[in-house]
């Protein structure tokens, strides 16, 4: 690996910016994600930063079981995050639809619609587990780089 590639690998690992998308979550996982930014957990020391725009983000954090209303939003926001990107499914809902499985208004699990890199199970997951999941996603993101097939493809 050349020095430049090593540098880029390190910078991607050290600077994962998040975009948080709620796809019909009960708000439990959202509260736990925001807790990670608080002084007790302080994810800023890992370079993690919650961004307002999906265009700025590297990691898409998705909570909720993907309701019918939010399905299009999930696909749009996923396409708006620029390559290289990773997806973290927070909580049991995006992984298995949890207690909502079988409901006619639920389009989950999330992996049916977009590729998921890291699952953080729990209802809700502990903030330590969320930080661990994001750190793993940052590692995946760093080793992934920009995929060749995505070059030149227009994004929404």
């Amino acid at each position: 690996m050349s020095i430049l590639k090593q540098l880029m690998h390190k910078c991607r690992r050290k600077s994962p910016w998040l975009f948080h998308l709620n796809t019909g979550s009960c708000n439990g996982c959202d509260i736990e994600l925001v807790t990670c930014l608080s002084p007790r957990y302080d994810v800023e020391q890992l370079g993690i930063h919650l961004e307002g725009s999906p265009r700025h983000a590297d990691i898409l954090c998705i909570t909720g079981p993907v309701t019918r209303n939010t399905l299009e939003a999930v696909k749009t926001v996923y396409s708006q995050v620029c390559e290289p990107k990773a997806v973290v499914a927070l909580g049991s809902c995006p992984a298995s639809c949890n207690v909502f499985a079988g409901s006619p208004v639920i389009e989950g699990p999330l992996s049916k619609h977009i590729p998921v890199d890291v699952y953080v199970p729990g209802c809700p997951p502990h903030p330590d587990a969320i930080i661990n999941g994001i750190a793993r996603a940052a590692e995946i993101l760093a080793s992934r780089g920009v995929p060749e097939k995505a070059k030149g493809e227009p994004q929404k």
Binding site: M8, W17, G47, E83
Partner: peptide, 19 residues
């Protein structure tokens, strides 16, 4: 960490932008 703005800048240079 002290080098955080540098990491952010280099990472942004390596991102694919929407065409």
């Amino acid at each position: 960490p002290m080098l955080q703005p540098f990491y952010d800048f280099v990472k942004l240079l390596g991102k694919r932008t929407p065409s």
